[in-house]
Design a protein around this nucleic acid. Structure first.
Lengths: 332, 332
DNA sequence: GTGAAAGCGCTAACAT
DNA sequence: ATGTTAGCGCTTTCAC
């Protein structure tokens, strides 16, 4: 069956064609199309009419070539299939669209090489800017890219004046989760940390600090890392519970790991929260409908995405912290 | 705080610079970079060395301008925050990346105007191709675009030789779901259809046909439309159950609506599946962990995405149908 | 095997 | 208010 490649490529309508059709110069067409002021109203009308008559479509490549920048915003995430990112992506998209920009998506799986590839590609496309979640690249590399392209990093701080960042208030969220988990008199808490990444330490420290503040002693030996997935959460919880059967409260790095932790407790014959309570982080859309409904720290993912783009377009180097809130459901 | 706009724009390293550094002509650099055969091995070495010494980065815009096509694949969905699409998007991304392409994402909310805008933008960017879920645009408009850009549509058929399509086998899935729901002797089924869209009729018809095949009579009056969300499913289920209290089996257009239907049955004081069974469609990652775990028709979303891109790159006008399978859990 | 010239479609700068 | 010139960085075509 013949495909598209066989069709004769229709010659593209250019600004030159429109100019000829309207009986004006190229520049006048360009002005009319971009709605610039220095043009007679009736001339504009005539040009616009000619353009639509011919079915003119601006060539974004040519425009970008001339202006040295394209109306593209790069969104770099570890895995769009992880239910945390889609809502962020929608926020990014809406804010970008409001600014007349398109969005190019990159998945890195938290691999530093692929994070770098994504940045390089954004540069090759003369992206208007990059917003992203970076887990593998060190600060200095990111700082280097920030010199070539406007960059806003999510959930991670870069040195002042290097690049803006938009982070969820992980410290407050962790404190609230620990406070909830620490309510039982015999509380013995553990944590399921996300993948070992550059920003992971901050999170560990927040947990250790919150536990210390509640007189729970040094919990650092009860922090176990794992992939940020349901399976990863299950495996990590089993490891934690194998080593420390006395643990009766688990703080998971994200809801997916929280779900996995619940499954692990159940698989060991325990009940949630009776034998072990679980608190997640993110509040996925479906977390409220789970069995049992998951207690978690809610973050506004859509707002996160929008804020990322707004910070990018605002062209500042601020550190923005987004509020979080504890949602108590059935697992803690 | 000073932002990025204040930094002095570093002059871009071009192919010309590399040529000068390596002491060869521009053309030779281009050949070396693209790994073309007509070049002496040592010349290539020298050029490559010069390029990396200078930190040369190819300009995708310039390349696209010259070749009249960019290595970009447009992915058009209604809403990336709907948990159905992210897995598809990942498949699209991986297949695109394997072919050296980037992906630009568009959200249309199923609005025909925005579907059109997305297509126009893809054209403006000289996209290598477009894959998408179109709910608002009529066949002839899509056919028109298919003449300007390689296009593969998802879950919808276009006339032969116009564009390729990759669809899930909705008919089989519906038949299986109805078979499951029809097992109770007094079965009275209803359907929660997705938004009224161009492809909606095919789905309604599949349901009506499947019910007729099971001797369930004409169910067309028990099909109620609604937004493809949890809230939409709840509302639609309430409307259905208000009008037809005898309904004891609901086939939801997707898992989100299925979750909503379960909530509605529960809110009315009923039990699932005792008073009313529910079967969804999609099998979201979290559907197995819901309360109660949702019975559904599983589709391989990641494969769907990959197949979309492969069909695009293969440049055929085939109609590809993807297999589905029934997953029986607790709601039916 | 290599280099020189031409030009993709657009907009900034400079005329007029 | 409008037209003309130049050139963004690359690849295709054609010389050599």
């Amino acid at each position: 069956m013949p495909g598209h490649g066989h069709l004769p490529r229709v010659k593209r309508v250019t600004i030159e064609d429109v100019a000829r059709e309207a009986g004006v110069g190229r520049q006048t067409v360009s002005r009319a199309l971009r709605d610039l002021p220095e043009i007679a109203p009736d001339t504009r009308e005539r040009v616009l009419a000619a353009a639509s008559r011919l079915g003119y479509r601006p060539n974004a490549l040519a425009k970008g070539m001339r202006t040295q920048r394209s109306d593209v915003i790069a969104l770099i995430v570890s895995d769009i299939a992880n239910p945390f990112y889609p809502a962020v992506a929608r926020g990014v998209y809406d804010a970008a669209a409001a600014a007349g920009c398109s969005v190019v998506l990159y998945n890195t799986d938290a691999d530093p090489g692929r994070e770098r590839d994504a940045l390089e590609d954004a540069l090759a496309r003369s992206a208007r800017g990059v917003v992203g979640f970076f887990y593998g690249l060190p600060d200095d590399v990111l700082a280097g890219y920030a010199r070539s392209v406007p960059l806003v990093v999510a959930d991670r701080q870069l040195p002042p004046d290097v690049a803006a960042s938009v982070s969820n208030d992980f410290a407050s969220g962790t404190a609230a989760a620990v406070e909830l988990l620490a309510r039982r008199p015999d509380a013995c808490l553990g944590m399921l940390a996300g993948p070992v990444g550059v920003a992971a330490d901050e999170r560990r420290l927040a947990f250790v600090a919150a536990c210390a503040a509640h007189g729970l002693g040094d919990v650092s030996a009860r922090i176990v890392p794992g992939p940020p997935t349901i399976a990863g959460g299950t495996a990590a919880a089993h490891r934690l519970l194998d080593a420390r059967p006395e643990v009766n409260g688990i703080f998971a790095g994200n809801d997916l790991m929280g779900i996995g932790a619940v499954q692990a407790v159940l698989a060991r014959g325990g009940a949630v929260p009776r034998d072990c309570a679980v608190v997640g982080f993110d509040d996925l859309e479906l977390s409220a409908y789970l069995s049992p409904p998951l207690s978690t720290v809610r973050i506004d993912k859509y707002d996160h995405g929008q804020t990322l783009v707004r910070a990018l377009l605002a062209d500042t180097a601020d550190r923005i912290s987004l509020p979080v809130s504890l949602v108590t459901r059935a697992t803690a």
